[in-house]
Every structure is written in C-alpha cells, then in structure tokens.
Amino acid sequence: MSTAVQEPPTPAHTIPSNPTESYTSSSLLTGADVREASRNGSYTKSTSGLAKTYIQANLIILPSRYASDFRLLCARNPVPCPLIAESESVGKWDAVKSWLTGLEGTDVLSAHDIRQDVPKYMVYKDSKLVKSHCSDIVEEWTEDHVAFLIGCSYSFESALSEAGLPPRNTTSDTIVPIYRTNIPLCPAGVFTGGTYIASMRPYKRSEIEKVRDITRAFSVTHGEPVAWGWDAVERLGIKDIDKPDWGSSPVSTDGSRFGAFHGDEENVPVFWGCGVTPQEAVMMAGLEGTIMGHAPGYMLVLDCRDWDIVSKA
C-alpha cells in the first residue's frame, strides 16, 4: 500500500486582520496562523485537527545542563521521543536548528516566539508543577534554557482522515486519551526509571492493518502503533481504559462509554507512543530548576508538512 502524501496548494492566510477578533479553528489553516493566534491569546483550545497537514510538536524546555542527557534519551527512545528540532543556541527562543535530514531550522519553524506560540503551557520548578495551562512562559524563560521539539501523533491524523479513517472524537474541544504504561524507557544520564506514555485511538479490528500501514511512514511523529487490542490494555499496565491519565475519556462508535465494549471488534483500542513521555521522564528524574512544556493536547504547530517528514521516514 502506498503511503505517499499528495501536496495540495498552500492555503491562503485567512485569520482575522484585527487581532481583537476571535479566531476559529476553520480560520487557522497554517502553522503560522496557529502560532499567531496563540501568541495573541485569541486561540486557547486543543490543537487537534488544526492546520491540516502541518506537523505538530510536543515541547519540553530544560536548563542547559540537562540538554546533552536529553538528546541521548531521545536517541535511545526514538518511538516515544522523536526529536525534530531544538533551540539554535542556549537561551534562543526565536530560532531552532533541525534534527531532520534535508530540512533547515527555518523550514521546520520560521518566525516564532517559542515562549508564546503554544496555546497552553505547564511550568515545573524542582520537578513540581507550579503553573498549569498558562498562556505564556515569558517570565520563566532564561538565557540558560534550551527548547526541544518532539514529534506528535496529531501529525498523522490528516493522512488517516484522507484514507477514510479519521480518529474518533478529535476536535478542538477534546484531547486524545493518554495513558501511563509499564513499557520502560532506555535510560540516559540523569533520565532513569521512566516509562512510555501512550495515546489511544479506537478503531475497528478490520481497520487496524491499514492504520498501521499509514502511520508507519510517520516515524518522525511516533510511527505505527506500539500495541493494539483489548489484551494490550492489561499488558501495558493500564488499570481503567475509561480513565486516561491525560486527555478526554474514549467513547465507542455510538458515543457511549468505551470500556463497556471490552472485547468488541468494532471498538478496539490502538496505542501509539506519545510526546508526553519526555515530560514524565523529566519529572521522574527529579531535575532541579525551572522546566517548561506544552500542556497535553496543546501543541506547537510547525511550518513543515506531512510530505516533508514522510519522505524522511
């Protein structure tokens, strides 16, 4: 089966010209649109479904003394922690260098302010959460911080939808269910004891092989599922499928409680590596200082597109 992504024309810039006007998901057609709306405080919802075909990224920002160990963590755990880019230099919040072959930093992320271009942020001090879902991190950012961009599975949802396999209940008002699992991460320096975090999208049993084929090409954004099937829930150490650790509770094809359909062939849980993994790894490491990241479901939307990363997969 071909996984090539066809390149449509770049959409016109259609966000409101007056920054006091409200932005809607239908007016946010590019990564630049989403970043501008987030920076202006006019868009504050989940980025699920926004700017179709534009790659979305998880964000983790660390004191520079942890940067080397974090790069190693990503290299050793490329499925849950696929590294896309990082600050061009220590303390740089408006330029990145790319880790993707064939793409420059400006191809990945052009004009931006990484301190304000995500709809919602999380702030930790000495590994304790001190601010949740805040609108910017301008006050917290220092000249010693390094930002890392990690691939996000939202990025393959356009390809799934194009193939007639749209994820269920993924809108700007919902966030994909996200779970802690018992799959251990390969340790790296100060980062020890972490486990995979997984996102879940339900599919029919008959659809799973096609879903695997499509998402396999997106290795830069987690690739194909790490597990699927009702038996995977127990194998991954998930205690209650209806109570994710982050995000919205899953629903069945008729909109009812997903867990009530245990064993049903029309409602099968499918799990992917998730970019919340590095945030959890940071918390497990007990790092000192101020650490920042995106709030789960509220991503940094980039300028590179589906076809840019599929060709690298």
Rank of each mutant, 00 (worst) to 15 (best):
G151C: 11
D136C: 13
T10G: 10
G275S: 10
S153W: 03
L50R: 02
S219P: 02
N169D: 15
P19C: 00
G41R: 07
V34F: 00
S17D: 10
V108Q: 09
V146S: 07
V233T: 12
G289H: 07
I309K: 04
P16D: 06
E266A: 12
A111F: 08
P166W: 10
H133F: 00
T195F: 08
E162Q: 15
S161I: 10
N18R: 03
V130Y: 08
V220M: 09
E224F: 00
K210C: 11
W272M: 02
V268C: 10
V79R: 11
Q116H: 05
F261L: 06
T277C: 03
P63Y: 09
V211I: 13
M283S: 03
L300F: 12
A4R: 14
A37D: 03
K204G: 15
E157Y: 15
L62K: 07
P278F: 06
S27W: 01
L129D: 13
L100Q: 07
L28F: 00
I137V: 14
A217Q: 05
R35N: 00
S256M: 01
P19S: 00
G297K: 03
S172A: 15
F70Y: 12
V130W: 03
Q116P: 04
S158T: 15
Y121D: 05
T195V: 13
R257T: 14
E36S: 05
G293T: 14
I214V: 14
K312M: 06
L236G: 11
V251R: 14
C186F: 05
S155A: 09
A260F: 05
F156R: 08
V301I: 07
C134W: 07
F261G: 04
K243N: 04
D107C: 01
G223Y: 05
S252K: 06
K243C: 04
N267I: 07
T47K: 06
C134S: 12
T253N: 09
Y121K: 06
P78T: 06
W230F: 14
N18K: 00
Y54H: 09
A67N: 08
L165Y: 12
V282M: 15
I60Y: 04
P78A: 09
C304I: 15
G255L: 07
S249D: 04
E280Q: 12
M283W: 13
P202G: 13
G102H: 05
D173A: 01
I238V: 13
S64M: 07
H133D: 12
S161C: 14
G105N: 08
L165R: 08
S25L: 00
A295V: 02
E88V: 02
L103Y: 10
E139S: 14
A67G: 10
C152F: 04
W272C: 06
F258K: 05
A147Q: 08
R305N: 04
R235E: 15
M1K: 11
S17R: 03
V268F: 14
V5Q: 06
L50E: 04
P11T: 09
T106L: 01
Q6A: 12
G31P: 02
G263W: 10
D240G: 01
T170I: 15
E234G: 07
F70P: 04
